[in-house]
């Protein structure tokens, strides 16, 4: 990093990470690689945001959780005995539509992150709300799908296939639900101006979580729904 002079009054709290640049050698709009336009590097031993580092570690650990769940499903996908199996249940056009909805929610999420980095609170709130709505639509589709499967005779304990399927997609659904709660909480906090610290970073962290949920669904959609059992 350059020899930028940091405002001595700026906070050194790791949770805040914001310090205005007062050095003329640093051009306006300088991006330190942390996606905080016009902000100095973080006051941490790595020079990176601890919040962001922790979020990536969390997402790395989430890979292990979903890796285990997906592995279990792949092992049990053909263990339904005489009970109803995936080929008789899947409605690929419907699931493709819900997958498309979740994919588009990643777009609206990234648009809210860029709006937050431009300090455009109105558009940030707008895109966050649209993302939450798209997430809600995806979740509604999943609930509908589960209801249809249950009515067709696929209970949670019907077979190993059923248990592993509901556990995997249910865990993903819970992640989506948690994401929606975080998005709506963020919208409310932004509206009431109750968000402390770097707003753009907070939106970006929620965005990372949301994109991860989308990435997991990309894998589930292919391995669970599209690849024939």
């Amino acid at each position: 990093m350059s020899d930028a002079t940091i405002d001595p009054d700026a906070t050194t709290d790791d949770t805040t990470h914001v310090a205005p640049i007062h050095d003329d050698t640093i051009p306006a709009g300088y991006d330190d690689g942390n996606d905080h336009i016009g902000l100095a590097p973080h006051h941490t031993t790595t020079g990176l945001s601890n919040t962001k580092l922790a979020m990536w570690m969390f997402l790395g650990s989430e890979c292990l959780l979903f890796g285990g769940l997906i592995s279990t499903y792949m092992l049990y996908r053909n263990r339904q005995g005489d009970a109803i199996g995936p080929d008789q249940l899947w409605d690929i056009p419907f699931t493709s539509a819900t997958s498309f909805v979740l994919l588009m929610s990643s777009l609206t999420m990234v648009l809210s992150v860029t709006a937050a980095q431009r300090k455009d609170d109105r558009r940030t709130r707008l895109w966050l709300t649209v993302t939450a709505l798209l997430g809600g639509l995806f979740l509604s589709g999943q609930v509908y799908e589960f209801t249809v499967f249950y009515r067709e005779g696929l209970g949670y304990t019907t077979s190993l296939f059923a248990s592993s399927f509901y556990t995997l997609t249910g865990f993903h659904g819970v992640h989506v639900a948690v994401g929606i709660i975080m998005l709506l909480s963020l919208v409310a906090m932004l509206a009431k101006n109750r968000l402390i610290g770097d707003k753009a970073e907070t939106v970006e962290m929620i965005g990372l979580y949301w994109h991860f949920v989308d990435v997991v669904w990309i894998v589930i959609f292919t391995l669970v729904y599209l690849i024939p059992a």
Partner: peptide, 10 residues
């Protein structure tokens, strides 16, 4: 951080 988790998962 992310790739370590991903590689372990795979």
């Amino acid at each position: 951080m992310f790739y370590i988790g991903l590689i372990f998962a795979v």
